[in-house]
């Protein structure tokens, strides 16, 4: 059997920065033959072992469970130990830029300060809150069906790949981010948990799930397929089911779709903004005027209605599962 290992030539641009001594980061160039057997972590090791011993990055388990080696290649979050080099070359070609998960949090090369990640993680009480009998007579059994409700949220390894791929994290410092929400869901969906605070915490405007932009970056970034945005959606739904959804603009915006559709089938866009904002509608007037002038806001009698409205109304009555 001939075991010829295929190789490809790659140009690497590697982010270098030392917060103690440097004012600005720089990029070091390396050209290397990469084999079909290698993963990104092998390349980081080769740079450190063969070229520059001062190159810094976190690594530990090297099999995708410790979460230490999360980083970015061409802007894409990944776990260095899990990412096959040939897959990266297929996706991006032969020029790869290696960067930390968050450039503005870089401490030394690929090592970042993850304080914000941990603070937000801690803020959602990431543990089961329960009054336990210290001397139980029998086991506290969670059935397989109940365990399935966690939707694999417990697979999270806290690597930070989704957190630093989330565009809101860079704009809104309060925002908890996808990893913290996945953790919140993991414990709030646990049948043993009785924490009243967690769901309220993640429903607060600014920091909570209502500020999620629904971009699905977190779902793509997660190396463990935790699918954080699915958990964010679940947290929204739990807020309604548990009756803790507050009467604010974000909640009305979600509920408003049902109101509008019950009336017309299609959405009455202006009506939705009015229902969501209430008096706050005044701040939208300047843009609305501009849009009106360009024929972008139909007059009330020109707003379309779906045909066979009776079907839609009947289904909305019989299939509705939530009340607000």
């Amino acid at each position: 059997m001939s075991d010829k290992i295929e190789t490809k030539k790659v140009k690497f641009k590697v982010f270098r920065f030392n917060a103690d001594t440097d004012y600005l980061p720089k990029y070091e160039d390396y050209e290397m033959e990469v084999t079909s057997e290698e993963v990104m972590l092998d390349i980081l090791n080769r740079i450190k072992f063969n070229h520059d011993g001062s190159f810094s990055y976190r690594r530990s388990c090297r099999h995708g469970i410790c979460g230490a080696c999360a980083m970015k290649v061409n802007g894409r979050s990944t776990l260095a130990c899990k990412e096959r080099m040939f897959d990266l070359i297929d996706l991006f070609g032969d020029e790869l830029t290696i960067e930390p998960l968050s450039i503005k949090r870089a401490v030394k090369d690929l090592v970042i300060d993850k304080k914000d990640f941990w603070d937000k993680h801690n803020a959602v009480n990431p543990y089961v809150v329960a009054d336990i009998d210290e001397e139980p007579e029998s086991e506290n059994i969670v059935s397989p069906e109940e365990a399935e409700q966690l939707l694999d949220a417990d697979y999270c390894i806290q690597c930070g790949a989704c957190h630093y791929a989330c565009p809101v994290i860079e704009i809104n410092e309060e925002f908890f981010g996808p990893a913290a929400f996945a953790a919140a869901y993991r414990f709030s969906a646990d049948v043993r948990d009785s924490d009243d605070e967690r769901l309220k915490t993640v429903n607060e405007m600014g920091q909570g799930v209502w500020d999620c932009v629904k971009c699905f970056e977190c779902a793509e970034a997660c190396p463990k397929d935790v699918n954080p945005i699915e958990k964010i959606t679940k947290l929204h739904q739990m807020a309604f089911k548990e009756g803790i959804a507050e009467n604010n603009v974000a909640v009305r915006h979600a509920v408003g779709f049902e109101k509008s559709m019950a009336k017309r089938g299609v959405l009455d866009e202006g009506g939705l903004v009015l229902y969501s904002e209430g008096l706050g509608i005044v701040k939208h007037i300047p843009v609305a005027l501009k849009m009106f002038r360009k024929g972008k806001i139909p007059l009330p009698w020109n707003i379309p209605t779906s045909e066979n409205m009776d079907e839609i109304q009947k289904l909305m009555k019989s299939s509705s599962t939530v009340k607000f």
Partner: peptide, 12 residues
């Protein structure tokens, strides 16, 4: 009808 635009999905 409207697709729900990912917001109805958060509600129901």
């Amino acid at each position: 009808s409207c697709c729900g635009a990912s917001h109805l999905q958060d509600y129901d």
